[in-house]
């Protein structure tokens, strides 16, 4: 894998990560907020796999193993976060993140 091909994949990963970041900062719906974090996870996964492929050899599997654990973290995060979202929705009957603005510290 040539260097230039690696850079393309890194660029895609960076673009996905930044789009997710913008979504996390702008959107007010709690569910879309967590979808944006999943987008950031996608960008990071592309980075890991591309670097593993770049270094081939043993690092090929290091990158994949890292993405396996990343999927585990994403699954835990999604289950806990969505449980909390449902809980919060039933408290105030809205998904607006600004409804919890009075939570300080």
């Amino acid at each position: 894998m040539t260097l230039f091909v690696l850079q393309r994949y890194l660029a895609v990963g960076a673009i996905l990560f930044c789009i997710g970041l913008i979504g996390f900062m702008t959107r007010r719906n709690l569910i879309v907020l967590f979808l944006s974090t999943e987008l950031m996870f996608q960008g990071i996964a592309v980075n890991f796999i591309a670097f593993g492929r770049f270094h081939m050899g043993a690092a090929f599997f290091h990158g994949q193993a890292f993405v396996v654990f990343l999927l585990v973290i994403a699954a835990t995060e999604a289950s806990l976060a969505l449980g909390l979202v449902v809980l919060l929705f039933r408290r105030k009957n809205t998904l607006d993140a600004d409804a919890w603005r009075d939570l300080k510290g």
């Binding site: 673009i15 789009i19 997710g20 979808l35 944006s36 987008l39 996608q42």
Partner: peptide, 8 residues
């Protein structure tokens, strides 16, 4: 990338 932009 395009569908990611549509997501947000």
């Amino acid at each position: 990338v395009i569908s990611a932009i549509r997501v947000i």
